[in-house]
Design a protein around this nucleic acid. Structure first.
Length: 963
RNA sequence: GCCGGGGUGGCCGAGUGGCCAAAGGCGGCAGACUCAAGAUCUGCUCUCGCAGGAGUUCCCAGGUUCAAAUCCUGGCCCCGGCACCA
């Protein structure tokens, strides 16, 4: 559709105030929202999926006569807008291209270097885009999370949660940039320039005492292997630094000490060459053994503490290093000791067997097993395989822990070391992580972090009934939700640093973290409209005010007029509970659970949310997540939204979302698929335009078309009610066109029946492709289609008889094709006449009797059938034919399902369809006979084959009809 | 490792005991229309048969049932989440 037509209708909806949720007491309501987008950049085709679904559902409910509220806001909190502004300032090429695509004038760009301005600007751009796809979102609710009134609301929320015992303070290990403070390390790299896929590795440090009282801290992932330590490795040509912690004096590399200070406090002391220690002995904890310190060129001083313990029996790298050592040093090391075994009994795979069987130490076998690999990756691969196997299947063999599983032994040793003091955990990233501003991100202990106590069993118990009652789409999400909640733990809810957000009311040095400030906002939207209309002022949004509005507690805020306060509360109580929260699958593990948590704690059960709808992503080729770089008018694989709307149109893209695949599935962005949707829409428009008419043309066909329409309307409503957009789209955009085509093919022509179907169809189109619906609805001049009632099944009279007739004919066609196809494939000429023989009425009785026997679980008995036939006046005459028929049909009946089809006058239907059969299947002549009258017209004796509902037929080949 | 979700025709994807050789879409083949292409429409698209029939299929192997894609048992494989990320 041309963009100006789309805009025309969008303006018409706006003039009609359709988007604004109007409270109508006593009427059902529907409150749905899409999890608000963050302000990280411009939206692309992937972002609109949720809104396209939400809008279709909202429009459906509106047409059902419900009051509908779909609010909209943007989530400006956190770092994304800060980052975006930074990139505008840096003139980042990707962002510059986006600004060009959006047509942002240069003068405007300077303003966007301010994070709050950037967030507001992006929010406005989102509103424009939503308007352009025809989504009706309530303008009176529009907010950003950095607005003053929203902050007042969030402050109240946290005050309430604190009063309810949901907030606590404690120590926490956080990913931390020395400049920006806490940053998020995740694959989206919102806060980072690199390293988003890094994992956190947690080392245990094992203390090795020197004679002089100092302790060398070796970092390891496998503390249980201290029973097999042969020596310590310190890096070549590096220095060691003293770490003073408590009363202890420890040694590690400079990087290691920095990490220890970050995570455990204390301070760094003097530095000296590592070589000073080489050759000296240390004492192994727990065993009391003495082992030498040796210099290892392979040790990376920046990893862990920079000091490692050598366990050559089980660590391939140590085995290699030991072998490469000069003989004198090697002689000083303790002999390697095997300290665990993998029992061979437990069904090992061939590749596992080779690590267990054979000569040498486990580490040597592991190295032998990876001989084929390139030098560089050999040690890593051997380590990976051996560690995994030993961890999963290994049993300790050292006397102290004989028979204990390795994973169990690891925990025990770590606990023993910790209990003895002098052992510290050290966490670090598996690869370098760099902040947007270029600084390395480290892991640091934050002693006074604020938490929300989601791990609290009491809170989880409050949540359980809410989860139990919740509806989810897809339903699998509801099934996994209890497990998600089960392992949910306390989450930090505040940060320090350059974040957008609300200052934490209990401790204003902190800013509330962006997930925590978006768990309850859906309650605030109904209130927001009073602020935007000026009836409430920010200063009036006090805790007392909100206590009254949301919980009905206390006298309320004295500066707010009592009537206004009552009205706000009524507004909230009208729209709540939320009917549907729609979001992408990225929300499943965090956002949706905390949204439920907060509601469970702050509201009574009757106001708990009713449903969650999770949709998949629009992905790039091969399922790759869409990255900003790909969204570009120049060379990008994903078009910017403006370009996509220009190329295809709003309805076309909306239909693409609804029709292509199910909503919970990821969808690979594919322009060809959008083309398909667009083409389908054109066909829909053509059929709808040509289907208008009046007058009765063919009563029987019209009855069938109306009956089919009855069915479609019933099913479309059921699909929308079940939040099945894909199912609804298929009915409206595939089934209905097929119906009309069949109707015309059968000889129906434009008239009252098609006209009636089209009139309803236009309304069926309105939820998913509203612009087209309006365009087609105009001639009816009944006002906007969006405001008309959704079609009701009773508008179309059902006719089981008419449907049975069509099904009968389809079955006949199917049989005919099965016979015709092979002949035409052989290139034979088509028949010159088709002769049908309709089954004699007695066959219906016989089949019914056999069916009764089958329903009783018996094999139909000829004896019984014959007995009944003898006493039946109509059948006595056919006693000679019955046995043959029973024998032929009984086995068929057993595998056929029972049918409740109404009886069809087969002769009449076939005779009426003669013209159709001639046209459709190319028979020059069609003749229809009753079985009993057909003897003269049945040279091949086919008429016996006739069964009720399945007439026999004879296709006369050219030249075959001798007589 | 822990937890969760899955394996359906060339591809995507419906389908939870009989109307299922399995919706719908895509792709492919053929025909109609057209000067032609595109679009559109019609038919076909597991194997065999070539008069409406038969056989073998829904990851694999067993089992329950008159009847299994669907239920049960075991196995193999894939995907997601695992934490501060909206």
């Amino acid at each position: 559709m041309r963009p100006e037509r789309a805009r025309h209708w969008q303006e018409a909806w706006a003039r009609a105030g359709l988007a604004t949720g109007q409270r109508r007491e006593g009427h059902p309501k529907y409150y749905a929202l899409v999890a608000y987008p963050g302000t990280s950049g411009f939206l692309h085709v992937g972002h609109l999926r949720g809104f396209a679904y939400a809008d279709a559902l909202a429009r459906y409910h509106r047409m059902r006569g419900e009051a509908v509220l779909v609010p909209f806001g943007v989530h400006a909190s956190g770092l994304p807008a800060v980052t975006f502004a930074q990139r505008v300032r840096d003139d980042d090429p990707v962002v510059r291209q986006q600004l060009d695509d959006q047509g942002v004038p240069p003068a405007e760009r300077a303003r966007l270097t301010d994070p709050a301005e950037a967030a507001r600007y992006l929010g406005e751009s989102y509103r424009t885009v939503l308007g352009a796809i025809g989504a009706l979102v309530d303008p009176s609710t529009y907010l950003t999370t950095i607005d003053d009134d929203y902050r007042a609301f969030v402050r109240w929320q946290f005050g309430r949660l604190h009063a309810a015992g949901a907030v606590a303070q404690g120590a926490y290990f956080s990913s931390f940039c020395p400049v920006d403070g806490a940053v998020a390390v995740d694959p989206s790299e919102t806060d980072l320039s690199s390293g988003g896929d890094a994992e956190v590795i947690r080392y245990t440090t094992v203390p090795f005492r020197l004679d002089d009282g100092r302790t060398l801290l070796a970092a390891t992932l496998r503390p249980e292997t201290l029973y097999g330590v042969t020596n310590l490795w310190v890096p070549d040509r590096t220095s060691l630094t003293v770490w003073h912690h408590g009363s202890g004096t420890y040694l590690a590399t400079a990087a290691g000490v920095a990490r220890l200070v970050d995570q455990h406090g204390g301070h760094a002391g003097q530095t000296f060459p590592a070589s000073d220690l080489v050759g000296r002995d240390v004492e192994v904890p727990l065993t009391g053994d003495r082992v030498p310190i040796l210099s290892g060129s392979f040790v990376d001083p920046s990893v862990g503490t920079g000091v490692v313990m050598s366990v050559p029996a089980h660590a391939p790298a140590d085995a290699e290093a030991l072998r490469a050592l000069d003989p004198t040093s090697r002689a000083r090391a303790k002999a390697p000791r095997v300290l665990l075994e993998v029992p061979e009994s437990s069904g090992l795979s061939a590749s596992e067997q080779e690590l267990v069987r054979g000569e040498g130490l486990p580490a040597e076998r592991a190295l032998a097993a990876v001989r084929a690999l390139a030098e560089a990756e050999r040690v890593d691969a051997a380590t990976e395989r051996l560690y995994r196997l030993e961890y999963v299947r290994g049993r300790m063999t050292v006397p102290e822990l004989a028979g204990v599983a390795v994973r169990e032994a690891r925990d025990r040793i770590a606990a023993q070391l910790e209990a003895a003091g002098s052992s510290f955990s050290v966490q670090e990233f598996s690869k370098p992580v760099r902040c947007r501003n270029g600084h390395d991100v480290v892991i640091r202990r934050v002693p006074d972090q604020w938490f929300l106590r989601y791990g609290d069993p009491g809170w989880k118990a409050e949540l359980a009934p809410l989860v139990e009652r919740l509806s989810t789409w897809p339903k699998e999400y509801g099934e996994e939700l209890p497990a998600v909640v089960d392992w949910f733990q306390d989450r930090p809810c505040t940060r320090r640093g350059r974040w957008l957000g609300t200052p934490f009311p209990l401790d204003p040095g902190w800013v509330i973290e962006p997930i925590a400030d978006s768990t309850f906002y859906m309650a605030y939207y109904p209130v927001r409209r009073f602020v935007s209309s000026g009836r409430l002022h920010v200063a009036q949004l006090t805790d007392r005010f909100f206590d009254f509005v949301f919980r009905g507690e206390g006298p309320g805020e004295p500066t707010v007029d009592r009537a206004v306060a009552e009205e706000v509360r009524a507004e909230f109580r009208y729209w709540y509970p939320l009917d549907l929260n729609i979001g992408g699958k990225e929300h499943k593990r965090v956002h949706f659970p905390v949204f439920l948590y907060t509601h469970a704690r702050l509201l009574p059960p009757e106001l708990w949310p009713k449903g969650i709808f999770v949709h998949g992503w629009i992905t790039g080729p091969a399922g790759a997540k869409i990255s900003k770089k790909e969204v570009s008018s120049k060379g990008g694989r994903i078009p910017p939204l403006g370009a996509a709307l220009e190329r295809w149109g709003a309805d076309e893209i909306r239909l693409y979302y609804a029709l292509t695949g199910s909503s919970s599935q990821d969808l690979e962005w594919d322009p060809a698929q959008v083309d398909v949707a667009a083409g389908r829409l054109e066909e829909v428009e053509r059929l709808a335009r040509e289907g208008r008419g009046g007058g009765t043309t063919s009563p029987e066909l019209d009855a069938w078309l109306r009956s089919a329409a009855h069915r479609v309307v019933t099913e479309v409503r059921a699909a929308f009610d079940a939040v099945d957009l894909h199912g609804a789209a298929e009915l409206v955009y595939v089934r209905v066109p097929n119906l009309l085509r069949r109707y015309y093919a059968r000889g129906g022509s434009v008239g009252a029946a098609t006209g009636q179907l089209v009139a309803a169809w236009v309304r069926l189109l309105a939820p998913i492709t509203p612009h087209l619906a309006e365009e087609l609805g105009e001639p009816d001049s009944g006002g906007l289609v969006a405001t008309r009632p959704f079609p009701e099944p009773h508008e179309f009279e059902p006719s089981p008889a008419a449907e049975a007739r069509e099904r009968f004919l389809e079955r006949v066609e199917e049989d005919l094709r099965a016979v015709l196809r092979p002949a035409s494939e052989r290139g034979e000429p088509g028949p010159e006449e088709a002769i049908f023989y309709v089954a004699a009425p007695w066959k219906r009785h016989v089949e019914a009797w056999m069916r009764e026997a089958i329903d009783r679980g018996e094999v139909p008995s000829l004896k019984e059938v014959m007995a009944r036939a003898s006493s039946h006046p109509e059948l006595t005459a056919y006693r000679a034919e019955i046995p043959k028929y029973v024998q032929r049909v009984a086995p068929l009946l057993r595998t056929e399902p029972p049918s409740s089809e109404p009886e069809v006058n087969e002769v009449e239907v076939l005779r009426d369809a003669e013209g159709y059969l001639v046209r459709r299947l190319g028979f020059p002549r069609v003749a229809v006979y009753r079985e009993s009258e057909a003897e003269a017209h049945d040279p091949l004796g086919r008429r016996d084959r006739a069964r009720p509902g399945r007439p026999a037929f004879y296709l006369v080949r050219p030249g075959q009809r001798s007589a």
